[in-house]
């Protein structure tokens, strides 16, 4: 319990730090931050939108601590300001459109990459020095060195453009209306396949290597030798004795990796015009939509922190030793 509380404290602090960064960064920009920010919107914004923006971001002209207080007050009411690119829509509404798709894409690819990578790591460690163990890790390291979005472009070119077997863009067929019908879900899955594959390809190597090294450590334990001596079947030793224990360090890495994979998947979404946060992000960058950019930063940070905490809870549940602490 103390472990979980300590972790929770860390995440609350991290959340506060990112809220504050979000407040400070615009004010650190060279020149007068408020006018620098608004100069870019010249001619694009109605006066009332400008006033709303000023207020939502706390650019009220008062002393800094008052600005900060008003910024926090707006934030806790769920007010992130008005989007410039999608004016007059609120940032929160714009973000809501993309959140589900990003969660679907990142969630499914992280889970698949984790499961696949861990399995490959188990096999590689079991047959250490074998053909599988000597060829696959370097290959996956090489794949992992490509930028995520570049792999996405290549997959798009190969399967979407040249072979024309999979869709090139969007999250579902434009002719279908979102519903829970089979044809819609099938279309979602079909559109998910290429972007998810590119993220899995780029991230599976890391999982495999860390699983492999922790598995090698576990294989040297006495209880594994004992299991061999008892004459248990290799499969049973591999999964029930060794892999189960070797998985723990990988679970700790899960939360940390999530933030990194999310960054990669934002870029992947852009390649596939996948309507998630990444796609919104590029719109925000192109139209210098600062409120939207900052909104994306905040939602993604909060999501990553929440996921990290869930992983910690899972870890306590998986490893009884942490419960004593």
């Amino acid at each position: 319990m103390r472990y979980l509380l300590r972790q929770l404290g860390l995440y609350v602090l991290a959340a506060w730090a990112s809220l504050t960064l979000n407040f400070i960064v615009p004010r650190l920009a060279p020149g007068d931050p408020a006018s620098a920010m608004f100069a870019r919107y010249k001619g694009q914004l109605q006066p009332e939108a400008l006033a709303a923006l000023r207020e939502a971001f706390g650019f009220t002209g008062g002393p800094l601590h008052e600005q900060y207080a008003s910024y926090l007050a707006h934030l806790f009411r769920g007010d992130l300001g008005v989007s410039v690119a999608y004016f007059p829509a609120k940032v929160t509404d714009v973000l809501g459109m993309g959140l589900g798709w990003t969660a679907l894409l990142t969630g499914s690819s992280v889970v698949v990459a984790f499961a696949l990578g861990s399995l490959l790591g188990v096999i590689a460690a079991w047959r250490r020095g074998g053909a599988f163990d000597t060829t696959l890790p370097p290959l996956l390291v090489f794949l992992g060195a490509f930028p995520y979005f570049w792999l996405a472009m290549m997959l798009l070119y190969g399967f979407g453009f040249t072979l024309d077997v999979l869709p090139l863009r969007h999250a579902y067929d434009d002719t279908l209306a979102p519903s829970l019908s089979f044809s819609f879900l099938a279309s979602v899955a079909e559109h998910l396949l290429l972007p998810a594959t590119s993220i899995v390809l780029a991230s599976v190597g890391g999982w495999m290597l860390s699983m492999r090294s922790s598995m090698i450590g576990v294989l040297a334990e006495d209880y594994v030798t004992m299991a061999h001596a008892k004459g248990l079947s290799p499969l049973r030793i591999m999964f029930h004795y060794a892999a189960r224990n070797a998985l723990l360090p990988n679970v700790t890495g899960f939360g940390m990796a999530l933030g990194f994979v999310l960054g990669g998947s934002l870029l992947t979404e852009i390649v596939f015009s996948y309507p998630g946060q990444g796609y919104l992000l590029v719109q925000a960058v192109r139209s210098q939509d600062y409120p939207l950019m900052q909104g994306i930063f905040l939602t993604i940070t909060m999501a990553v922190l929440a996921a990290n905490f869930l992983v910690d809870v899972l870890y306590v549940w998986l490893d009884p030793r942490t419960r004593g602490r």
Binding site: L13, A17, L28, G259, G263, V304, N308
Partner: peptide, 19 residues
Amino acid sequence: NVSLVIPGLPLAVVLAAYL
């Protein structure tokens, strides 16, 4: 630890956009 759990790319985007 705080800077480790804050996702890098979204933060980098916000920083790069203002600088």
